[in-house]
């Protein structure tokens, strides 16, 4: 039983990162019906930027670890958001009116470009975050060892998700985003500037992705230029699992996927872990073709 709970926390920790990245996929999909393959690489860039900024400003030393990390996170999120908007401008906007699959290929091209750009700038070797930013101790919770950094990461990602949820549900701009996701033309008729909504989505999604990259860097210490590919695919799966286009769905999907992976490797097989995750996904889609929280929309009349 103790092992079960330990695995549950392991799964939630990984799942919260998936969820954070999945939000970017699901928001872009919501308004553009586009799978933004470059999103995983923006996540990678977030991790690398975090490392560079840590090394060059050493904020945690000058203004204290807590405030330093907050400022660092804001800087990373801001920079990755700008990059996300640039990607949208250059690779996606010219294809707005063209067949959807063309935009997918453009997204793949952007992904290859960004990944290799990171490799050429930072080199192909694994990069390491400075040690001792966050104390490497663990909390003993009824016999479960949970590292402090893990609790911190879980807390931060949940807080970010909650903030996004409130923003989307309660503010006027959030309502505009939801409206554009349901029907762009109708939203335009209601006086919503859809182009601005799209730009906003390409700022928020990458910002969260960049934050996830920073959290991965802080938690695991080790980053490499291909990590966006692995995490991106998982996060995209999570978004589909929860019902793509649906924001709470992406959060739920991410957490569930993390837990499935951890329990799958604990009780079935480690080597088959990813296969189990995909298998569960396919089963869910056969039973519930819209994902867990996805709404049933009429396809075409």
């Amino acid at each position: 039983m103790e092992e079960f709970f330990q695995q549950l926390t392991n799964g939630l920790a990984v799942g919260s990162i998936y969820a954070l990245i999945a939000l970017g996929y699901t928001m872009v999909y919501g308004v553009l019906k586009l799978i933004n393959f470059a999103h995983g690489d923006l996540f990678t860039i977030g991790a690398y930027l975090g490392m560079t900024l840590l090394a060059s400003f050493a904020l945690h030393e000058t203004i204290g670890p807590f405030l330093g990390l907050i400022v660092l996170a804001l800087m990373v999120m801001g920079l990755v958001a700008i990059l996300g908007a640039i990607v949208e401008r250059t690779a996606y906007r010219p294809l707005r009116e063209s067949p959807r699959l063309s935009a997918v290929v453009s997204a793949l091209g952007a992904s290859i470009f960004l990944q290799n750009a990171v490799m050429l700038i930072y080199g192909a070797r694994f990069q390491v975050y400075p040690e001792d930013l966050i104390p490497e101790t663990s909390i003993d919770l009824f016999g479960l060892y949970i590292p402090v950094v893990r609790i911190l990461v879980l807390f931060v990602s949940l807080a970010l998700m909650a903030a996004l949820f409130i923003f989307i549900q309660k503010t006027r701009i959030g309502t505009a985003i939801r409206a554009a996701a349901i029907d762009q033309d109708a939203a335009r008729l209601m006086g919503i500037d859809v182009n601005r909504v799209i730009l906003l989505v390409f700022l928020i999604g990458p910002a969260l992705g960049g934050a996830a990259g920073l959290l991965v860097g802080l938690q695991y210490g080790q980053i490499n230029f291909t990590m966006g590919w692995t995490y991106g695919m998982k996060a995209f799966t999570a978004a589909i699992l929860g019902g793509i286009g649906n924001i709470p769905g992406a959060m739920l999907g991410g957490l569930i996927l993390g837990v499935i992976e951890a329990l799958g490797s604990a009780y079935i097989s480690i080597a088959w872990k990813d296969a189990i995750a995909f298998f569960v996904l396919i089963l869910i889609l056969i039973v519930r073709p819209t994902g867990l929280l996805g709404e049933r929309v009429a396809d075409k009349i």
Binding site: Q7, G11, V14, T226, T230, A266, I270, A271
Partner: peptide
Amino acid sequence: FDALTPKQSDYTAVLTKMKG
């Protein structure tokens, strides 16, 4: 005797199982 999936960053699930 098992295999992990390379290129991921979280191996706590593997470690927990091995520890068991």
